[in-house]
């Protein structure tokens, strides 16, 4: 996918856009370019924020300027990259049992499916980490199957615990903090996206794949950190 445009942000940002609408192709192009920039060691570049359809390259304005970063990025050849083969697949165990699944019943009613069928759909899909945002470690996952896509709740629910596995529209998420949310919580995991490991503080890289696996309560409790 070709770059749609390069936008200069403040004194320190280059926003590179691939599309104005969300698509897998646009996100894959973002991830390919993100990987290419990561390897290129462009002078003055401090960090990159990949998002759904665009990415922001943040640089030190005392060392470089927008046009120099743009020219360095234009020289990269991300098209040939096989993003899928660069991605890791993470298997995340989820307990969908009562007490940990506050919205499973509501989702099943909204989708006119049994709770079992909702769980089956949720565990059958492969999700992609398409960006982080909102709060530390909040990895937005694309790929929620059409049949269990439900809108956000009109009012957020407070104090949803860390490890909640939730969905809203085409997106999924595993929470890392106790926070309010309007998403539907259908299960809980003992896996922590913020690992606490200084070598790899965040479990997923943008572009990685995630698969959910059903676990029972006993397994969930034994895996709790």
């Amino acid at each position: 996918m070709d770059v749609l445009g390069y936008k200069y942000v403040a004194d320190r940002g280059l926003l590179i856009e691939f599309a104005t609408e969300i698509s897998d192709a646009a996100n894959e192009a973002v991830i390919a370019l993100d990987h290419a920039i990561g390897e290129a060691n462009i002078p003055g570049v401090v960090e990159v924020i990949p998002a759904l359809v665009n990415l922001l390259v943040i640089f030190d304005p005392l060392q470089t300027r927008h046009i120099d970063v743009e020219e360095a990025v234009r020289k990269l050849k991300p098209e040939g990259r096989d993003v899928a083969s660069e991605a890791k697949t993470h298997h995340v165990g989820v307990c969908y049992e009562d007490g940990l699944n506050p919205d499973l019943q509501a989702v099943s009613e909204a989708c006119d499916m049994s709770p079992e069928a909702v769980i089956k759909a949720h565990t059958s899909a492969t999700y992609r980490v398409c960006m982080y945002g909102f709060a530390p470690g909040y990895a937005y996952l694309s790929g929620v199957p059409k049949e269990i896509q439900v809108p956000r709740k009109p009012k957020p629910v407070r104090d949803v615990p860390a490890g909640s596995v939730m969905i809203a529209g085409p997106q999924g998420l595993v929470t890392t903090l106790k926070m309010p949310t309007g998403w539907s919580v259908i299960g809980r995991t003992a896996v922590r996206v913020m690992t606490g490991n200084p070598e790899k503080p965040f479990l997923f890289d943008v572009g990685d794949s995630v698969k959910f696996q059903r676990i029972d309560r006993e397994t969930y409790e034994s895996e709790l950190p």
Binding site: V9, A10, R12, G13, L15, T20, E21, I22, I49, P50, A51, L52, V53, N54, L55, L56, I58, M131, G133, Y140
Partner: peptide, 9 residues
């Protein structure tokens, strides 16, 4: 708009 990167300021 699709969620996109945000800079302080």
């Amino acid at each position: 708009i699709p969620s996109e990167p945000v800079l302080r300021g």
